[in-house]
């Protein structure tokens, strides 16, 4: 299944919808049911990406279990139908990449996924092999984004990935970290290497990325992916024990997932947040954050204060 030609898609979008909203797979920037514009962020190459993506750590590692695979297919279908595009995975996530590939195959047609995976091996010469493995598992001819997972053998992998990008075998190159680890190294790479994406943990309860990574991403024109937006589920479980605030509803926020995710994508340097879930109803909640008004700075401060008090 070939990855969509973004440029062609963008031209078609502009011509057909006249939105000027950039690349938006399938929905062309519109919710089919409600007709509301999807929130997008501009990528380093000028294309736009829906600001809510999907993580697959744990949730898509279900092996060959047919029942669980059918469930994950429904989750991915819901995500794509709601206007989502970026799906993030890694060979470190066990069977997740193969499960995504199976789901894309089941969904069929031309599911316009923005395929993001990672290189995760201490062997610095195995970069191309791992990229090919991801393409095979996803059932794609070309990955959109390959990232060096947790900076494992990062120098060798980055060199190879950048070469592959130059040769047109990849669209974008990035690096990842999580749980606030190795931010100093991440900053150094962001300054010294021509990467397109950086991925780090960023949530309403863990805003360390706001100190240096996000400003640096903005300065260097690097797209920022926020992983662990719900802190592995602990944050959303905690806030869901409390009633949803009236003032948040009046501000246009629909539910706690919308609250936590819109806070992140409202940051001017944040490109995409990637919550993970194995449940369709949770995916629907997550995708409410792809539409509607974003909180301004004053409202974001109030959101932080409110969650700190819970």
């Amino acid at each position: 299944m070939p990855a969509p030609d973004l440029s062609r898609r963008r031209i078609l979008q502009l011509a057909a919808a006249g939105l000027g909203a950039g690349w938006l797979p399938v929905t062309f920037g519109q919710d089919k049911s409600a007709g509301r514009t999807v929130i997008t962020r501009r990528l380093p190459d000028g294309h736009d990406l829906p600001a809510i993506g999907m993580g697959t750590w744990i949730t898509f590692n279900v092996g060959s279990d047919p029942e669980a695979r059918a469930g994950r297919t429904q989750v991915l279908r819901t995500f794509l139908e709601a206007g989502g595009a970026l799906v993030d995975s890694s060979p470190m996530y066990g069977s997740a990449e193969s499960v995504i590939g199976h789901a894309l195959d089941e969904i069929g047609g031309d599911p316009s996924v923005f395929a993001a995976s990672k290189v995760w091996t201490p062997d610095g010469d195995a970069t191309a092999e791992q990229v090919a493995q991801s393409e095979r598992r996803w059932g794609l001819e070309r990955m959109d984004l390959m990232q060096v997972h947790n900076l494992v053998a990062w120098e060798a992998h980055l060199e190879h990935l950048l070469e592959m990008r130059e040769e047109g075998r990849l669209r974008f190159v990035g690096i990842t970290t999580s749980h606030g680890r190795r931010h100093t190294d991440i900053e150094r790479i962001m300054r010294d290497w021509p990467i397109d994406f950086v991925q780090a943990s960023y949530s309403l309860a863990n805003r360390e990325a706001e100190d240096r990574l996000l400003p640096l991403a903005e300065e260097r024109g690097i797209a920022f992916i926020a992983n662990r937006p719900f802190q592995g589920g602990r944050l959303i479980d905690r806030v869901k024990r409390h009633p949803f605030p009236v003032w948040a509803r009046e501000a246009g926020l629909a539910n706690w997932a919308d609250f936590l995710l819109k806070f992140l994508i409202a940051h001017p340097a944040a490109t995409c947040a990637i919550p993970a879930t194995s449940r369709v109803e949770h995916m629907r909640e997550n995708m409410t954050a792809l539409r509607g008004p974003l909180p301004d700075e004053a409202l974001r401060r109030r959101m932080v204060e409110h969650v700190q008090e819970l």
């Binding site: 744990i58 949730t59 590692n61 279900v62 092996g63 279990d65 029942e67 669980a68 470190m92 996530y93 066990g94 749980h179 680890r181 190795r182 592995g232 194995s278």
Partner: peptide
């Protein structure tokens, strides 16, 4: 130092439901 910063739960790759499903299968 990086490895020491991981909690046991951070290394977990699957959910309890999927682990339990192994025995059903």
């Amino acid at each position: 130092e990086t490895w020491l910063s991981y909690r046991l739960a951070d290394l977990l790759m699957f959910s309890p439901a999927i682990y339990a499903r192994l025995f059903e299968r």
